[in-house]
């Protein structure tokens, strides 16, 4: 019998602070509690936007979900598997994570080798690897970039290739950290269309509220490490007072052009 998963991601009372003398992270946040008692779950294959001002813990929350930060308190379940050091290989085979900066995601010489990196690590035959790479590149509409040297690519191309690297692993869930950052309008539009065409559980952390409005079913508003509000995207993103109280603004498309204020 096939087990139906209702909640692909479930967080129960997550709290997290960076260690004071962490060896690997040199962050201004050292010692500060970044997340406080955060609980939420995804419902079916939905797209959830995580919004909030700078430094409220959006990226940290995503890093916890893939086990890049493990010294949290509370419980994180990915497809009902608790995120622990032991379960990381299994968890990471189910989740694709998109870094904010594509240069952190892409480290091979060519697009093909980078997209093939994940499937090869999971021991797939080279024929299967090629199939997956071509499928991922096809989904992102970048098959023509297959053999392109990564250093020669534009920011938009790099972003598309970065998403292809996670699609090639055929995850159930994808986490995207500021995916539209540094994209020009054309590439941003292509990204939005692509995200809407992907049938995965999606968690998108972003300041780009217009993009969140177009891609997410539900939104979680974070402030000072806590969930302030959670609900249907349009309801939250139309609430001007709420957004402004927590350092955000209405999405541009809902504001209307009022001329330049002098």
């Amino acid at each position: 019998m096939i087990k139906m998963i209702q909640h692909f991601i479930e967080c129960r009372n997550i709290s997290f602070s960076y260690e004071k003398f962490s060896q690997v992270k040199f962050s201004y946040e050292n010692g500060k509690e970044v997340l406080k008692d955060v609980s939420f779950k995804t419902d079916g294959k939905e797209a959830v936007g995580i919004i909030g001002a700078n430094g409220v813990g959006k990226s940290t929350l995503l890093r916890i979900l893939v086990g890049l930060e493990l010294n949290f308190t509370g419980e994180v379940l990915v497809e009902q598997i608790p995120v622990t050091k032991k379960s990381l290989p299994e968890i990471r085979s189910k989740i694709g994570y998109l870094f904010q900066d594509s240069d952190n995601q892409l480290f091979n010489q060519t697009v093909y080798n980078d997209v093939a990196f994940g499937p090869r690590n999971y021991g797939l035959e080279e024929e299967e690897v090629e199939k997956r790479v071509m499928k991922a590149l096809g989904t992102m509409g970048i098959t023509h970039l297959r053999d392109k040297q990564i250093y020669k690519m534009s920011g938009g191309e790099k972003k598309m290739a970065s998403i292809a690297t996670i699609l090639a692993m055929e995850p159930d869930i994808i986490l995207l950290d500021e995916p539209s950052i540094a994209l020009d309008p054309k590439n941003r539009r292509a990204l939005i269309n692509t995200l809407n065409s992907l049938d995965y559980v999606k968690l998108i952390a972003s300041h780009d509220l217009d993009m969140i409005l177009e891609t997410c079913d539900r939104v979680i508003l974070l402030a000072e490490g806590r969930i302030i509000r959670e609900g249907i995207t349009e309801l939250i993103l139309r609430d001007k007072e709420l957004l402004e109280a927590y350092g955000l603004e209405l999405p541009l498309c809902l504001r209307g052009y009022q001329g330049r204020k002098r």
Binding site: F26, Y97, G118
Partner: peptide
């Protein structure tokens, strides 16, 4: 600090795609 941070991010990216200390090269 910047180089260590970048290198750390790259390593994270490798770990997230199943890297377990060994590179699997082209065919």
């Amino acid at each position: 600090f910047r180089s260590m941070d970048r290198a750390g991010n790259l390593y994270d990216s490798m770990l997230l795609r199943g890297f377990q200390g060994e590179f699997y090269y082209a065919r």
